[in-house]
Computed example of a mutant assay.
Amino acid sequence: MSGKSRDFSLQWKRFFWIVGIFLALVLLLYFRFTSSRQVEGIAEIPVPVRVVPIRAERIKLYDTVIGRIEGEQSVKVLSGVAGFVVDIGKSRGDSVKEGEVIMVLEDSGRLYELREATGRHALARADFDEARRKHSQYKKLFDKGVVSRDELDSALSAVNRAQAQLEAFEASYKKAKWYYDRLKIRSPISGTITEIPPDTGQEVMQGETVARVAGNRKNSVIAGVDSSIAKRTRRGAKVVIEYKTPGETRSAAGTVAGVSKETDAYSTTYSLEISVDDKDVWTELWSGEFVNLKIEAGLLADVVRIPITAVLYKDRVPLIFVARGGKALEVFLKSEPVRVDSGTVAIPVSLFSGGSQIIIEGGSRLEEGRAVQILKDR
């Protein structure tokens, strides 16, 4: 009996092992099935996106470059003498006529020199006039035989000495007056003040630049561009000139007046000359100032403008996601999109089928066929 009991017990153990393994397999299959259903359920959650409708439009293209205002003539105004600035009669942007005083300097030493030279010159003039009077008197007396030849010659020598002294003091006077007059700094040309570096009370040295004046009879805007822009820019093309004034940015209309045929030797760029249509704008523009130029470069028809961030890449090929029927669909572009400005590109509407909307936000989380939820505009 003991042997049979052991066999019976062994059979029950085998039975329980088999049942346990079976239950473990059932539980394993159950958990795998339920987890896959959960993952599948998560994948079906729609991705929130923002879209724009596909509406064909015509877009003007512009090349954006930096230009520089150039006057017909731009000169530095140098101080002819040293001195302290006591008065500045003009400001940056003011019009000035040739010979008009821009600034006044003060140098007490020059004033004293002029006064001293003026006094010496006046005394020398008086001595010369007196010597001439005496010589004339001696000549009459010599003709009458009252004075001798030696006395007449002595009177003539006195005239010559007085004349030489007068000429010397006259030269000193003119030199002192020249330096004193240079304390009033005048504009060498008619134009517009573009710069006045020194301030009132500041000392300036001889030869120092105290102002810049730009002639304003023939102003233009010059821009250096590469060969691609130079080739597609035509004389007469419209230009938008953007410039800054205190507190705001303004714009003015311009026209391409010419395109250089050769490159600049230093910058290796081609030069565009732009004329400004509204001549009154020159009162707000100064020679040497930098401005932004938007040059008309062409026209795109039947395109839609979208943010550049909506363009994605797959295997280096540009693509855009569109929403149709609640799903995200890939639309591959045949080439790189045309950039309209720094933030947008133009896409031909012919790439899209009816009923589609372009996804502009949320595309980075999408794949072909993924469910999407279109969000309303903010």
Rank of each mutant, 00 (worst) to 15 (best):
E151T: 10
S91A: 11
E203V: 07
L285Y: 02
S36D: 14
A223K: 00
Q163A: 12
E151P: 02
L123N: 08
S91P: 00
S187G: 07
A176V: 05
S95P: 08
G83N: 07
E296K: 07
P48A: 11
A122Y: 07
S335N: 09
D150Q: 14
L366K: 09
A253E: 15
A211K: 01
I21R: 03
S172E: 13
D153F: 07
L272Y: 05
A346H: 03
G215E: 02
I185W: 00
E116G: 05
V85S: 06
R365Q: 11
E368N: 12
A301W: 04
S2Y: 02
S136F: 03
F15I: 14
S356M: 13
K76F: 07
S108P: 04
D127Y: 08
L25W: 11
I359Y: 06
R50F: 06
G215D: 07
G80V: 07
R339D: 05
A310T: 12
R110Q: 12
W12T: 13
E336F: 05
Y173V: 02
F321M: 06
F321Y: 15
K4L: 12
A24H: 02
L28R: 05
D277W: 00
T249A: 09
E70I: 00
S251Q: 11
T118E: 12
S172T: 03
K244V: 14
P46D: 10
K177Q: 12
L61R: 04
R115G: 05
V276T: 09
K244C: 04
V86N: 09
Y179A: 13
D278P: 09
K244L: 13
E296L: 12
S267F: 11
G201W: 01
Y270V: 03
K218G: 06
P197A: 03
F169M: 13
E106M: 09
K134I: 13
V331A: 09
A310S: 15
V239R: 03
F33S: 15
K60P: 10
S220E: 08
L123W: 04
R14T: 07
R235E: 15
G362S: 09
S95I: 01
S267N: 15
A257N: 05
F33Y: 15
V81L: 08
Y270R: 04
E100V: 04
G119Q: 09
E273N: 14
I185E: 02
A346T: 06
V210Y: 00
V259P: 01
D7N: 07
F15S: 13
G354I: 02
R125C: 02
T283Y: 01
T209R: 09
K334W: 02
L111H: 08
V221W: 00
K134Y: 10
L285V: 06
F22I: 10
L285I: 08
D94I: 03
Y313N: 10
D302L: 05
D226V: 03
L156P: 01
G326I: 09
V65K: 00
F15T: 15
V49H: 04
S342P: 03
F128R: 12
V317A: 12
V147G: 11
T283F: 02
S95D: 05
L312M: 14
G80R: 14
L10E: 13
